[in-house]
């Protein structure tokens, strides 16, 4: 948007005053944009800021009026209390176990399948690709009950298996994402490796994967966060409290009437922070990944 007035001005206003007026106009416009963006930014920050503020409040200030933004005194003890009020570290370990194993499975399986779809010319691959994209339209509700029945017959209910094993067999979105990325790698690289006598597995491992690190990182982050945040899966398959993930366990602060808001918000901050840090440090990967899922609409 800044570029267009510049190109316009170069032909119309060669004089200094004209340029100055343009600059003033541009500055005013930027100011206006900021004036709209800042209040919206405050609104978007509100849930997290309020969470943070409440996590440091003594219970007398939860509903005080006027609202307390910076509690006095800061009740840091909410944090140690929060992790002992529920079995926080047990739930953390459960969540990590599921998230890490599911992520590794997704990376291996989806990259293999994407390799097949993008780099090996075989007769059925276009059909398989279309079928894969089509599964994205299928509501999760349709497969939910039969899968539950199968898992309960296998004795998998109340174990992590239903939350991990399916991810070792690929998921459509990540296969799509990786396939799109693998397609952009020049075919000549594979040809050269074939001439050198490399088999497909070696090309996959030594040529393609090293070049696709960015796309693999995107898949890893997306999948890890999806499993970290997952609510429905644990809700359905984990009823034994020892197996709870954080998203189930956090409910325990809400005992009877009302809730331990200070502890609850402290725990919420603790489970949100890792994701925010991930986003902060890997922002580029995030943004590219999201853009990649949206291409070709």
């Amino acid at each position: 948007m800044t570029a267009q007035p510049q190109t316009a001005q170069s032909s119309v206003q060669p004089r200094r005053t004209g340029i100055k007026r343009k600059q003033v106009k541009k500055a005013i416009r930027q100011l206006l944009v900021h004036l709209m963006l800042i209040p919206l930014a405050l609104v978007f920050m509100l849930p997290f800021l309020w969470m943070l503020s409440t996590s440091l409040k003594p219970d007398t200030q939860f509903y005080s009026y006027p609202p307390v933004w910076i509690p006095n005194p800061l009740q840091w003890s909410n944090y140690p209390d929060a992790v002992t009020y529920i079995s926080f570290f047990l739930y953390l370990r459960n969540t990590l176990t599921i998230a890490v194993l599911a992520t590794i499975g997704s990376l291996i399986s989806c990259s293999l399948v994407a390799y097949s779809l993008a780099r090996i010319p075989w007769p059925g691959r276009n059909f398989l690709f279309i079928f894969t994209v089509a599964t994205l339209m299928l509501p999760f509700q349709v497969t939910l009950i039969p899968l539950f029945v199968v898992y309960s017959r296998l004795g998998w209910v109340n174990s992590f298996l239903p939350l991990i094993v399916p991810h070792w067999f690929g998921s459509a979105l990540y296969i799509f994402l990786l396939r799109q990325f693998f397609m952009t790698i020049p075919m000549e690289l594979s040809e050269a490796a074939r001439i050198d006598g490399a088999g497909e597995l070696r090309i996959y491992w030594q040529v393609i994967l090293p070049l696709a690190k960015a796309a693999l990182a995107t898949v890893a982050i997306f999948e890890f966060i999806a499993r970290w945040r997952d609510y429905l899966g644990p809700l359905i398959y984990l009823s034994n409290q020892k197996l709870y993930t954080l998203s189930l366990g956090i409910y325990e602060y809400r005992s009877q009437y009302g809730a331990e808001w200070g502890l609850l918000m402290a725990a919420s901050v603790l489970i949100t922070l890792p994701i925010i840090l991930l986003f902060f440090f890997l922002q580029k990967t995030f943004v590219q990944g999201i853009a990649l899922t949206g291409i070709k609409g």
Partner: peptide, 29 residues
């Protein structure tokens, strides 16, 4: 505009909060 990355991060923030935490903080707010 200046601070584009900061704004983008802020607008993205609620998307990063786990649904459970988000739903509960909303109930509270």
């Amino acid at each position: 505009i200046r601070g584009q990355v900061v704004y983008r991060t802020i607008y993205f923030l609620p998307t990063l909060v786990p649904e459970v935490a988000l739903a509960l903080v909303w109930v509270y707010m």
